[in-house]
Write a protein that binds this DNA or RNA. Structure first.
Length: 454
RNA sequence: GUGACUAUAGCUCAAUGGUAGAGCACCGGGUUGUGGUCCCGGUAACGAGGGUUCGAUCCCCUCUAGUCACCCCA
């Protein structure tokens, strides 16, 4: 007999395991797409906190919110971000629609904004048009610390004016936002890559300099020598750094206009007391930049460059490139996930939201039915109230009241429901009073008022 | 795309070549309708496939996922 029993048990377990395995397989098959993550309600508090700071900081500077589609024509990014860039060559989520259109989930925000600027005739608005948005971006990269395939950026754009104060303003605003969040210790890396003319000259200087030394460069840089020699300057390989150290900085090659522009940007930053590092090897991965470029690194971080909190620069040719009039512009972006990561690292937490004042508790069928109307009345009267209709026992409802941290519980039992009364329980001292149902709003309001005085 | 490491309940972690335990969380109960503390109970896991073995969660291989680094960026 025991033998038989054990086989039955074993069979039972085996069957259960098979079921579990199938469920597991299904679950794994339905996992979130690689590099994409959920933002759960607990984390949302952090996001709301950041967004509040962002809105409060940007509004006085006349930045207005804009939203553009996540999906844009692939060509938009090829033409603006640049065909030779890493982003376009290997990091885009692109596909063909049923209608045969080639589209891409935006890997960065600026091209879409400039497209919208041109398409909606925003050059007829008061210039510069200052825009900001927090939105998702998509890059097909291998996920790792602070890097996801879907991530959020705060973008700022000031289109339609070439004043250097705008370059400084963007950096200043990023600094201010981070500062307000408690992440003020940043390093601003700044450089100027001039206009087309300056770059033409500098480019030939670079080619002349690197060509005889080509064999010593890394494989990537050998290719870069032809495609984009500027990027040799910010190659992270030691041998390339050594070779590149002998190159005169691009700042020496700026034309008069670009030189003055850059100098003034730096002056404004000085005036705003923003500490920056003139980083002459700083380059950018996007093709459309002109003049000022910058990155924001967390201070004192060894891997600062990898975990850049943000970056940006001027893009004086992009509007025209995308079919608009000759229009100058400047912009930048902060990585939201990276900000959140830093906040968590520092143990900075948003202020806890206020607990509700009241929980409505009901016992028995009659009370449950009646409580719907009462609940509505309480909400309409502006009382911060929650319900527990899905719970039946008073014990579980009071436990819930405790978890919510309410000041009062309103208990509507069978008896009270019949007599049109309700019990008001003070959760602090446990004192209960029976109150007439038609007077409940006033009674509660009175009590909440005096409760907060304690 | 290249390399390294990891894989046990929702979370944080244990133990073991003979199929697993805790803490937190969640749900319920501690006599008829009273919470927080306390007590009791419950739900719930060895990522997948193959191999070695009498037997594998544990050893080996493959896959998948995650983490980290390179690359690049936010």
């Amino acid at each position: 007999m025991p033998r038989k029993k054990s086989t039955i048990v074993k069979k039972g377990i085996a069957k259960k395991n098979i079921v579990n395995t199938n469920i597991k397989k299904r679950r794994q098959a339905l996992q979130a797409v690689k590099g994409m993550r959920d933002i759960l309600p607990v984390e949302m508090k952090m996001w709301d906190f950041i967004r509040e700071v962002i809105d409060d900081t940007l509004t006085p500077f006349s930045y207005n919110r804009i939203e553009t589609p996540i999906l844009e024509k692939t060509e938009l990014f090829e033409r603006s971000t640049g065909e030779e860039t890493d982003i376009v060559q290997k990091e885009m989520f692109s596909f063909k629609t049923k209608g045969g259109e080639y589209v891409t989930m935006r890997p960065e925000g600026t091209p879409g904004i400039v497209r919208a600027y041109v398409e909606n005739g925003m050059s007829n608005l008061i210039q510069p048009v200052k825009l900001y948005y927090v939105g998702t971006m998509y890059r097909y990269e291998k996920p790792q610390a602070g890097r996801y395939r879907q991530f959020h950026q705060l973008n700022l754009e000031a289109i339609g004016n070439s004043h250097p104060v705008l370059d400084a303003e963007i950096i200043y605003l990023f600094h201010r936002i981070l500062n307000k969040l408690g992440l003020g210790d940043i390093e601003v890396q700044i450089n100027s890559i001039g206009c087309k003319e300056c770059r033409k000259e500098y480019r030939s200087t670079l080619v002349d300099y690197f060509t005889p030394k080509k064999r010593q460069l890394c494989e990537d840089c050998k290719k870069r020598l032809k495609s984009n020699p500027f990027r040799i300057l910010d190659c992270k390989k030691e041998k390339c750094i050594n070779i590149a150290s002998g190159v005169p900085p691009i700042v020496d090659y700026l034309c008069e206009e670009c030189g003055i522009h850059f100098k003034r940007v730096l002056e404004y930053l000085d005036e705003a007391e923003i500490v920056y590092n003139l980083n002459t090897t700083l380059m950018r991965g996007l093709d459309y930049y002109t003049k000022t470029i910058f990155e924001i690194w967390p201070a004192g971080d060894k891997q600062s460059a990898q975990s850049a909190l943000g970056g940006g620069g001027r893009y004086d040719n992009l509007v025209k490139m995308l079919g608009g009039k000759e229009t100058t512009a400047v912009g930048g972006a902060l990585g939201m996930e990276r900000i959140i990561e830093k906040l968590k690292e520092r143990g900075i937490e948003p202020k806890n939201k206020k607990s509700p004042d009241v929980l409505l508790i009901q016992l028995g069928e009659l009370a449950k039915k009646k409580s719907l109307k009462i609940f509505e009345n309480l909400i309409e009267s502006g009382i911060y109230v929650r319900e527990a209709l899905h719970r039946d026992s008073i014990k579980s409802q009071l436990r819930y009241a405790d978890k919510l941290g309410v000041k009062f519980s309103l208990i509507l039992g069978q008896k009270e429901a019949q007599e049109d009364m309700i019990l008001v329980r003070n959760m602090y001292d446990g004192v209960q009073e029976l109150v007439r149902l038609d007077r409940i709003v006033d009674e509660i309001k009175k009590r909440i008022k005096s409760y907060s005085k304690k």
